[in-house]
Write a protein that binds this DNA or RNA. Sequence first.
DNA 1: TTTCTCACA
DNA 2: TGTGAGTA
Length: 127
Amino acid sequence: MAEKELQRSKSVLPIGTVMKLTDLTARQIRYYEEQQLVIPQRTDGNRRMYSLNDIDKLLEIKDYLNEGINMAGIKAIYAQQKKRAEDLQNESLTDNDVRRILHDEFLNISGLEPNSGSPLHSQRPLK
DNA sequence: TTTCTCACA
DNA sequence: TGTGAGTA
């Protein structure tokens, strides 16, 4: 069973494939890497190789973006997740508990990050 | 051909 | 973020 996890972590997808799978531009994917949201492995000529887990994370990021959250907000979310993941490891909570807490953090951030003036999450990049 | 980095709009 | 330049 653990074999699957290893395979999911195998970075074998070039950015071109990731682009199609996530519907993101190479620019965005690389940018998210800059923001440490995804850490693709590098192979041969300095080429980025993404794993299935990376695809998943990218899809998740795209989701947050659609909800009007900016990079700062997303980074905060992942920072929280990492912190939570470590904390929760010692308390043996269920996935539902994790989800609830994460959701709570998410709402908290989405309501604060956007603007210092508007309390509600009205971050619509209308153009 | 595809991806990379860098830099400018 | 998009895009173009010059590489590898």
